[in-house]
Amino acid sequence: MSDVLIRAKGLSVGFPIGGGLFSKQILKAVDNVSLDIEKGSFFGLVGESGSGKTTLGRALLKAAPITAGGAHYSDGEVDYDLENITRDQLKDYRKRAQLIFQDPYAALSPRMTVRDIIAEPLEVMGLTRNRQETDARVREIAAKCRLNLEHLRRFPHAFSGGQRQRISIARALVSAPKFIVADESVAALDVSIQADVLNLLKQIQSEMGLTFMFISHDLSVVAHTCDHLAVMYLGRLVETAPTRKLFAAPRHPYTKALFSAIPSLDPDDRGTAQKLTGEIPSPTNQPSGCKFHTRCPFAIDHCKQVEPQLESDGTGHEVSCHRWKELMAPVAA
């Protein structure tokens, strides 16, 4: 058996939104997603804003309602079916699976000192026996995240965005979890600290045997950090592959558009990115057929009628596009 930590099968999350009591619409934030996250991997999730990355991450943490399909967690010690998890199991799962938030401002309680913020999970989960033990553990993790003793006494409002993000990371790591969803965890950091935190996350990952789901919009960050990538569009996975394979030869037109829009560091190379046109479709009123057809430069009639399915080529590279093969073929001279 392969070492899969999390396996999602047909996972969907829907939110009721808007309207009156009787005209509730369902917004499908995550739609029929199947994926395997291998133990010890750094699994990257990229995609359009609003495509459901955060929601998928939260569903895997059992923090968003799974409305169809399911997910399975298995770390060698325990085996949980997230759909039918019991209360006791859920309590235990909270120790094993942690979130590092997207927004470090919303995440930290302003009235607690940094020490208390980091210590809280230990105390709530009863993981340490006394204050000394808690303090020792907090100091150890804080040092790993480059926070010093003086920082621990202060309140979060006195910290900059980047500093706060390291506080949230320390808080997520303190309970020694096995699975971490890091949601845009380095987006607020300057490049030097970003490099530092990414190296830190990698180091902690190998030291503590962690598995990461790493959500980011920054493709160069993802390229350097993740071993496997999944690309989302409107709640669906459109392409997954080992990172290098994906960067070497992206197959889905959306993935290609993403790569081409990476801002160049050359000030004279402005405006050369291949820009996507068209509106991002509303998630409550999704296009028929391939959901990308309204913005895809290669869409044909067939795309508007029939939804493509994720198909694997047997090497771990999966794509959901009717035309990927012909689009990959070299253009005849």
């Binding site: 993403l258 801002p263 996507l276």
Partner: peptide, 16 residues
């Protein structure tokens, strides 16, 4: 930091 949470295609749009 207006574009930190935006994917690159939207980022390009917002910059434009």
């Amino acid at each position: 930091e207006p574009t930190t949470a935006l994917d690159v295609t939207i980022q390009a749009q917002v910059i434009d």
